[in-house]
């Protein structure tokens, strides 16, 4: 009996000690983890926009996120866009459109743009702004980039099925909806095969593809032409292959209307990425058109 008591006592002490160590480590690292994740994301966004580091981006460059919500109310489903308020205002605006894109209403949301970055805070503020028993479900976010008050580009974080599991990517579009850049954030494709989607010679192929081209291009299994490959690898970094920036731009422009060259041994992965990017672009362009129209008709002031 005494034995059992000692065992229980010692185990409890051991568990408490272990818990204290882990809890301490959690408290110490969690802040850093969030900070680094945010920094990393910002770095990726800026490099997609064409700035090598956080410092080299001009101060006039502003990123405005738009959060999209699916709202289930009595009258059926609606789409809510949580937008930052006009410059100088602290709150945000929720613009509600119906499923066909017609303007339904607009609600002020008491939430600072900084606090809106956290999903839990948004999840608390939005139902309060909606009132009643309407439920809001977070769908996705897109980011409008402005420079000196002018729209410069759009950043779309997205997720689509790959060959094995989901691929998380970030897509940058120019103002005319041609692709500015693609970055693969997370993927679990096979290393050496589908894993090559993160390589420059694959992801840079999407660069400079126009909206029109993006609607209809496919994936071809012919080998990647050598000069195109060199241009893709030289793009946006220390130029290997001895190509100047102009030459790179020229070769890329030449291939901009052509299909995507599939990775060797990973046609399905290549096709998944192409389809995923296509769907992201098309959905975004459709939604942004409706939102812009509603903003214009209702004269809702937004900073972008």
């Amino acid at each position: 009996m005494k034995d059992i008591l000692t065992i229980i006592f010692r185990l409890t002490v051991a568990c408490l000690l272990a818990g204290a160590i882990m809890g301490g480590a959690f408290v110490l690292t969690n802040q850093a983890k969030r900070h680094n994740a945010e920094l990393n994301e910002r770095q990726v966004m800026l490099s997609l926009l064409g700035y090598a580091s956080v410092k080299s981006a001009p101060a006039s460059l502003k990123l405005y996120p738009i959060y999209r919500y699916l709202i289930t109310a009595k009258g059926g489903e609606e789409i809510g866009y949580l937008l930052p308020g006009e410059a100088g205002e602290a709150g945000m605006t929720l613009v509600i459109l119906d499923l066909d894109g017609k303007f339904v209403g607009q609600r002020p949301v008491t939430l600072s743009p900084e606090a809106a970055k956290e999903e839990t805070k948004r999840a608390a503020a939005i139902p309060a702004a909606l009132g009643g028993d309407a439920k809001a479900r977070y769908a996705d976010q897109t980011i409008v980039v402005t420079e000196g008050g002018q729209r410069l580009a759009y950043l779309l974080p997205g997720r689509f099925p790959g060959f094995k599991t989901f691929i998380t990517a970030m897509l940058a579009l120019n103002q005319d909806f041609s692709i500015r850049g693609l970055e693969i954030m997370e993927s679990e494709e096979d290393p050496g095969l589908g894993g090559e989607i993160v390589q420059k010679y694959f992801k840079n192929q999407f660069k400079a593809k126009t909206l029109e081209a993006m609607r209809k291009i496919g994936v071809v299994k012919t080998p990647l032409p050598d000069e195109y490959r060199r241009a893709l690898e030289a793009d946006g970094g220390t130029g290997s292959g001895g190509l100047s920036a102009e030459q790179v731009a020229k070769i890329e422009a030449e291939y901009s209307g052509k299909d995507i060259y599939a990775l060797t041994g990973a046609t399905i992965s290549s096709r998944s990425v192409t389809e995923g990017v296509r769907a992201m672009v098309q959905k975004f362009v459709y939604r942004l058109g409706l939102l812009d129209q509603a903003l214009k008709e209702q004269k809702i002031a937004v900073p972008f």
């Binding site: 699916l70 459109l97 499923l99 066909d100 894109g101 769908a139 959905k283 939604r287």
Partner: peptide, 10 residues
Amino acid sequence: VSEEQNPDIS
């Protein structure tokens, strides 16, 4: 007809 996650895109 629409995807459940994207009811606004028919």
